[in-house]
Design a protein around this nucleic acid. Structure first.
Lengths: 191, 191
DNA sequence: TGCAATAGACAGACCGGTCTACCCAGGGAG
DNA sequence: CTCCCTGGGTAGACCGGTCTGTCTATTGCA
């Protein structure tokens, strides 16, 4: 009954390798050679599959985006009201943030020193638009009088937590402060 | 009566060049050769003066730190109460944030892909400790029941605004959301 | 005369990307 | 069943360029 364990394709191994190395050490620091060596894939295969390092970075970020989307979509089913779902987003992501392997928002890191036209920039744009739409939609469903404004404020908190989680030593205090901030904001905007 | 316009020292020119290039394009992207060329200084002088690129980055970040400290200290004299001073920090920094040349928090950018022992990391630690102390002290003076918690929440907002300012297109909405968030938070924590 | 600063060659490593040559499993065709 | 071909993958040399950092030799000024 065991499923035949198919060896992952070269593309899958490349993406897994890029995801691990790019996130842990940074897209600029990690070179192509290390990605292919860690994936056990030839260099020509990388360039046949992705075309350039920039496109590999894009694929890596899009994978992160999809994973976050799925994690939040799955996690939010456990929360009932829109208001609880907003808290839920921070709870779900907070679980990731407290992971010792958390290295900050991959989109913030990848675009920190990116050139204007880089693939990472457009991938980050897509991600941030999705986050904002998520918060704005939930705010609207929760009956906020100005859902755009509330959504943007929630994103400010979301970003602030992620930055503090990467740069500060006391992650617990940071996350707690962010959650407290969310509760205060919701009480003021919805009650 | 004109002050004799002394030519800036090599150290000063190097720091000014590093500040401009490192901030605009990033500490990893900009190489030593561009820094010295823009400063009009020989490479050997750079290494005699700073010892390494890492130490030049540290000096660049320390200069940013001092400049922010001075700008806020000067600006805050225009605000009377501690509570107004808290708003004042965001007003003062918000003026920088809306500058079209704003490229995000230099400490966030410089440490985005830094190796664990890099000079940028310790410089960023110093800066963040100062920001937190600033917010915590003002919160205490404002009579907050839990100044540490309020200070940390203010830093979350501070970070979130900076990230949004770098990554989003609509900076005005981002800054407005952050300021609104600060007012809501202060009303809840101090009233 | 002495010292700091200069220009610039140089070293050694690494970068992204290209290219050649080879291997080998799978699937028709005979 | 066997043969052959195709196509994806592999290994790794190689390219031009850039990186940080060192060193030499020279210049200009006090």
């Amino acid at each position: 009954m065991a499923v035949t364990t198919r060896r992952p394709s070269a593309r899958e191994r490349l993406l897994a390798s890029a995801d691990e190395l790019f996130y842990r050490e940074g897209v600029h620091v990690v070179g192509i050679d290390r990605v292919i060596e860690h994936a056990g894939v030839a260099k020509a295969t990388l360039y046949n599959t992705f075309g350039s390092k920039d496109e590999l970075i894009r694929a890596y970020l899009q994978g992160r985006h999809k994973a976050i989307e799925k994690r939040i979509a799955d996690g939010l089913t456990a929360y009932a009201s829109p208001r609880e779902k907003i808290i839920g987003v921070f709870d779900i992501q907070g679980g990731r943030f407290t992971n010792p392997e958390y290295r900050g928002c991959p989109f913030v890191s990848a675009t920190a020193e990116a050139l204007p036209g880089a693939a990472s920039v457009s991938a980050a744009d897509d991600y941030r638009a999705w986050v904002r739409a998520l918060f704005t939609d939930l705010s609207r469903q929760a009956g906020a009088p100005d859902p755009e404004s509330l959504g943007q404020q929630l994103q400010v908190i979301y970003d602030g937590i992620a930055v503090g989680m990467r740069m500060d030593h006391d992650r617990t205090a940071n996350l707690a402060a962010g959650l407290e901030l969310v509760r205060t904001l919701l009480a003021a905007a919805l009650d």
